[in-house]
Design a binder for these strands. Structure first.
Lengths: 197, 197
DNA sequence: GTCTATAATGCGATAGAC
DNA sequence: GTCTATCGCATTATAGAC
């Protein structure tokens, strides 16, 4: 049986772990850092999670659901142009709302996806292949430009996640301007032009 | 005075350090790993570099020159469409030729660019702002679509570096296909459509 | 220049009191 | 449930022989 306090502490620990892991990666993060951010002692956070690895796995597990939802929402029955622009906008919104999750994911893939290989080669690949087939169907029907569906999906990932993952660089170059200011208008124009048959 | 052997060993160490740092990040990498890849003993690599940090700084220093060259090559006197597509193609070629450097850079920026902040806010920002002005001039002259020059440059970075930085993910999704197969044709089409006035 | 041995510290995890 | 204390191992860096 789990009490309110237990749930609250588990959440505080995962919140702190996300802060730390998303910046420093798994090996670069320490339990001392996570405990300090969570406002708990190091042995105490190990009372709630068996190990540093268990914290990281818990974060990756809950990440996958969040991460796949926008792509899942693409429907073959919708208008091709609207469906794909809608997907791009949802992904861009995720870079706004979940930048730490985006960086956690980026850290993981940069290192060769050691802990995500199964999920990527399984659920994600299946979902991507399925949506790529929908896009291929739209192209065959003459409703979209003749572009490679996989590269189209990769381009949406690259362009939207860049604003979360390379936030530090964009801030240093653009100064006080909000890094994502103007991004949606730019990407709307880009994909509008790209998709037209 | 530096001998041939010294130069060769320094190069072997930097080569090994790039292998290791680009995958594991700075804190996630160990001197044992680097020494093993270099085929030298741990004290021996510390004979050539004062510290782990010195190896990392040496890599970042030589990285910056490589990294800025393609953007520097943009000329106000050229044809706008050709200049920008040429830049994109050079950047894509760098993801092919220097994927480890791309990941080293990505690791650094993901962590908030602690060791690159000065270079980004200095040389890189100055170069980007200058080339953005050139692009703005082309737009005012009606030779390009009315798009934000900074976002255009960011989009080139995002789309090209994605193939190096997220290589593991793309491989898992595309299977045996070369991750960059079809990328140039796709990006040629994308930027051709985006840039037209 | 390169090695073995080791010092010095950092870190994940556990023991045990309360 | 939470803490202090500590174990045991990994890691950076140095000492000193050759």
């Amino acid at each position: 049986m789990t009490t309110r306090i237990q749930r609250r502490n588990r959440e505080r620990i995962l919140e702190a772990a996300l802060d730390v892991f998303s910046v420093n990666g798994f090996r670069g993060s320490t339990l001392d850092q996570i405990a300090a951010v969570a406002g708990l002692s190091k042995p105490n956070i190990l009372y709630y999670f068996d190990s540093k690895d268990a914290m990281h796995r818990a974060l990756l597990d809950q990440l996958l659901g969040i991460w796949l939802a926008p792509l899942r929402a693409i429907r073959a029955t919708g208008d091709p142009h609207d469906e794909i622009l809608g997907y791009m906008r949802r992904k861009l919104q995720m870079s706004r709302d979940y930048p730490r999750e985006s960086r956690l994911f980026a850290n993981e893939v940069l290192q060769g996806a050691p802990r995500l290989a199964d999920a990527i080669a399984g659920d994600l690949k299946a979902l991507v292949d399925d949506r790529a087939e929908i896009i291929r169907g739209w192209i065959e029907a003459g409703r979209l430009a003749r572009i490679d569906p996989h590269h189209l999906i990769f381009s949406i990932w690259a362009l939207t996640q860049h604003y979360a993952d390379f936030d530090a660089q964009i801030r240093l170059i653009r100064g006080d301007t909000d890094p994502m200011d103007g991004a949606e208008a730019f990407l709307d124009l880009l994909f509008d032009r790209l998709l037209k048959p």
